[in-house]
Design a protein around this nucleic acid. Structure first.
Lengths: 227, 227
DNA sequence: AATTTGACGACTGTCGACAGTATGTGGCCC
DNA sequence: GGGCCACATACTGTCGACAGTCGTCAAATT
């Protein structure tokens, strides 16, 4: 339950604590379902409860922590098949909308960035670096949201991204390394650079379908294991 | 022996402060762009800064307040044409998705609730009650999101709803009473109860288009007035 | 033995005070 | 007279302590 206490190099302690907490959740240092106690964590981080409290609130908004009732303690969000399904169905809708919005704005910079982020993803996969694999895959998908130039959409994507990371991280930690296949984004890239928006929509639905299936399979396996 | 026990009253000061703040922003008591000072507000509400701080964070997440940089003060969100456009485009996407998801779940209860909420909206319009008009119109549109049974979607809707309320409230306060026309939701209701999902999609785009035009027109007018 | 009741412990909610930072003001140098 | 720097000020960020609430467990009652 005690997480390693490192230096908090951020500007405000709230942000530093939020980052540290996020990392602890995503690395599994704080396992899904585990209780989060303010005083304990505050002491571990070497800060007072006030800024940690605000950090906890932020993580609650991001969906990485959950709180049942008012005085009930908060805990790390458990993995749930329903939430996973919601995550992928909503994400499909949002990402299609992102492509529709960004479609006519795709310029040389966009194409270059897409290639660069894909290269980073491949490098992370080759390096067998799970954390980097997750980060780079999210960065790859995040590009469209940025290119859409739509603040609210970007915010919605961030809200989804956090939870998504939680599921992927748990997945990677469980099996040794069933990350995305090296060629998993070839079609995505081809269509994203192409001229057929409808084909992109179909590819997105298909891509999400596959991703959801993987996550659901993992959750079921895990449930049996725990039971 | 069991007494009908339900809605526990407000317990935490944070929630009460958040409600009070929300009301103050939406009624224009705190005008768009106005600075929000912790100590002042805390004294005004008769509470300490700690719970008020958390309430402010919550309103920041809802988009009713904005904060520029780290130590910079927070202020009431100003009205902005770009944000208004984003609000309506994203809302169109989400509401279409909500109808797609809820389409096959529409049962007798759904149809009854839709009619009931529409009746409440009409009553509010007839009563010339601006606040109730906004609330009931949002409740009417919110029904589909609830019927979709999709937690994340509902959360996304709430995030949009708060900002939307801000624009509508400002609009209502500016002009005497240019609320929605009495027949503004007739087509919406007819298609929502009908059997043609594509027709519903078209109606939604059209409905949003009209709503956005109204809000944009208001913002431009207001800008001239202020300048 | 099962159920109720009371006290204990742990934790969250709240408070008042202190420290650090950004902004505006006045004086000082050029 | 204009620009730069020290200073005052107001506000946010942070802290340690206190109060209220919930869950648990054991004693008492039936």
């Amino acid at each position: 339950m005690s997480m390693a206490a490192q230096p908090l190099p951020r500007v405000t302690l709230r942000e530093g604590a939020a980052d540290a907490l996020r990392q602890a959740v995503l690395t599994g240092q704080l396992a899904p379902g585990a209780a989060v106690v303010e005083a304990t964590l505050a002491r571990a981080l070497g800060i007072s409860r006030a800024p940690l409290r605000e950090a906890i609130r932020a993580l609650l908004e991001e969906g990485l922590l959950v709180q049942s009732r008012a005085w009930g303690g908060v805990s790390v969000a458990p993995l749930d098949a329903t939430v996973a399904r919601e995550l992928y169905t909503l994400r499909t809708t949002l990402e299609i909308f992102a492509f529709e919005t960004a479609w006519d704005r795709r310029d040389a910079a966009f194409r270059a960035a897409l290639g660069a982020r894909h290269a980073e993803l491949l490098a992370a996969i080759d390096a067998r670096d799970d954390t980097a694999t997750i980060a780079t895959e999210l960065a790859l998908h995040g590009l469209v949201y940025e290119a859409a130039g739509h603040g609210l959409l970007l915010q919605a994507w961030r809200a989804i991204r956090g939870r998504l990371t939680l599921y992927w991280a748990a997945h990677h930690q469980a099996h040794g390394r069933p990350g995305p296949r090296r060629d998993a984004h070839d079609d995505y890239l081809r269509h994203a650079l192409g001229h057929d928006l409808d084909a992109m929509r179909i590819e997105l639905r298909d891509h999400m379908q596959r991703g959801l299936a993987t996550v659901l399979h993992f959750i079921e396996d895990r449930k049996e294991h725990t039971a």
